[in-house]
Amino acid sequence: MKMLDQPLVVSGELSWLGGDRLERRVEHPNREVSTIADGEVSQEREGREPRRFSLKRAPQLQILLDSFVAMLGGDATRLEQAFTIQYSGDDARRWTLALTPRDPKLVRTVSRIEIDGAGNEPHCMRMQEADGDLAVDLLGPLAAKMPATPTRDALAALCRGG
């Protein structure tokens, strides 16, 4: 992240609650539960007032939601509607999906998402924001391999190699 000297690392659970609903539960370093449901994002932190805002105000989340729900639900049409998709893979076991948002407004905040996986399992999701910031989600068993002070290159290698 440009504003920061070092990358931010959090760990927790991301779960799909069905429909357009996602829950993101952070365990470390601080407990926090965020849910996206019915076009609204709510964020609850220990000892703080919950914060709510409309999904419309956070285009990154809309993209996250679209890609996740479509992928986890196996909804190829929805994925097609929201993104232009590039598929590349060495073989059936290892693949990378590159998603570019179709909505020109969204592209201005998130330029592309890359999802790496093997077989039926996505391992890694990298969201490239238009301002140069990069968010990397290590999923499933890969999450345990998150280094304490990750670098972009190390993470990229981890994603492809996992």
């Binding site: 992240m1 504003m3 601080n30 105000r57 285009p59 990154q60 989340l61």
Partner: peptide
């Protein structure tokens, strides 16, 4: 800092 790692970051 927590906000930056949360869904509200972009906001």
């Amino acid at each position: 800092l927590e906000d930056l790692s949360s869904p509200a970051a972009g906001l």
